[in-house]
Design a binder for these strands. Structure first.
Length: 340
DNA sequence: CGCGTTTGACCCGCGC
DNA sequence: GCGCGGGTCAAACGCG
């Protein structure tokens, strides 16, 4: 199991790198005038790109000086024109580069999604059949199913039959359960909509209690990530092996809501990454804000990776039912790979 | 004064 | 059975 986690970490790193590169390029391209897609900043990357730009400027200035020495007194206008041309050319080049990087991100996200599906399948196989009954990949589109199958063939880790079973089972899922799952998934995805989430997660099952569990890894500066629901802290504990305390929150949107979440700030690997584990299913509809974010996040995931980077740019008017394209029954799913 | 957070005590499951 | 560790409770405290 640890090897699987390592695989996910590897993916996370690559995604963040791509994200940073694009962000740095965008900064360099428009000087940060564009509306920021993420509130969180990686200042060092921006600085690097600015330094590059300055270095280019210095180079251009040096070239200009050389020109001035070799030619006969060009007018100031000519010099400015030259600089302008060079800058415009540079800008065009960076735009092109930006486009290419976006394509790379696009491909990477597709690969990432495939891997998530594969990971869910692998974990499905690890569980007893009794648990698999509750597993579901949600109402995937035929393309997504194909992708998953292709991935399965490539790895030889899962078989199409099992995937098909899962798909068929979810059509019999109790609507209430599906709502619960949507809520579960929504909670995690709301962070996407908030632009805070950098990675998605893993799921886990508590065999003893059989409670639904979804964990979300989010890059978040604050003590807790805003997922649209109201939470009340009811306890805090220092877990062994992690110097950072684990906080326990309870959903206060509705009295008696069984949903709890635990947050663990992982100090050792990355202080900025917050691992949030949601447990249980809501016994109430999600707040409007949370639902909107959830559906927005859903559309962002199922559409372009750019909207993944900036979920608010995605169409927020998509119906909540869109969520079922990657949510599932009883709290589990392809992406989160959840189980009950 | 009400609500949320903090924190020590308690409970319970699990491994030995 | 015992010890350990995670999870929860509830009184105390702080803040608006």
């Amino acid at each position: 199991m640890s090897s699987k986690r390592q695989r996910i970490r590897h993916i996370d790193l690559s995604l963040e790198t791509a994200d940073d590169e694009v962000r740095a390029l965008e900064e360099a391209e428009d000087g940060g005038d564009q509306e920021e897609e993420e509130e969180e900043k990686e200042g060092c990357e921006v600085l690097i790109s600015n330094e590059d730009e300055e270095a280019n400027k210095h180079q251009e200035e040096n070239q200009t000086e050389e020109k001035e020495q070799s030619y006969e007194k060009p007018t100031a206008k000519d010099v400015i024109k030259d600089e302008l041309c060079v800058l415009q050319a540079e800008m065009e080049r960076m735009k092109e580069e930006n486009r290419m990087l976006q394509e790379v991100i696009d491909r990477t996200m597709n690969d990432y999604y495939d891997l998530q599906m594969k990971f869910a399948d692998i974990q499905q196989e690890d569980q007893p059949k009794e648990h698999q009954v509750f597993l579901s990949l949600g109402r995937q589109s035929s393309d997504e199913i194909k992708q998953a199958k292709v991935a399965d063939r490539g790895s030889g880790l899962a078989d199409d039959e099992e995937l098909g079973l899962s798909l068929s089972l979810q059509t019999h899922v109790d609507p209430h359960q599906r709502d619960d799952a949507r809520e579960e998934k929504g909670k995690g995805l709301q962070s996407w909509a908030a632009g805070e989430l950098t990675t998605i997660t893993s799921q886990s099952i508590n065999p003893a209690t059989r409670k639904t569990r979804v964990s979300v890894r989010a890059r978040c500066q604050g003590p807790t990530m805003n997922d649209g629901c109201q939470w009340r802290k009811y306890g805090q504990k220092v877990a062994k092996g992690n110097p950072c305390p684990r906080a326990y929150y309870r959903c206060t949107v509705a009295p008696g809501c069984p949903v709890r979440k635990q947050q663990v700030q992982r100090c050792l690997e990355d202080m900025s990454i917050l691992v949030t584990t949601y447990e249980g299913t809501h016994n109430h509809p999600l707040p409007v804000g949370a639902t909107a974010m959830a559906s927005t996040a859903a559309s962002s995931l199922s559409s372009s990776p750019l909207s993944y980077l900036s979920p608010y740019l995605a169409n927020p008017s998509l119906p909540l039912s869109t969520m079922s394209s990657f949510t599932s029954s009883a709290g589990y799913s392809g992406i989160f790979g959840g189980r009950q």
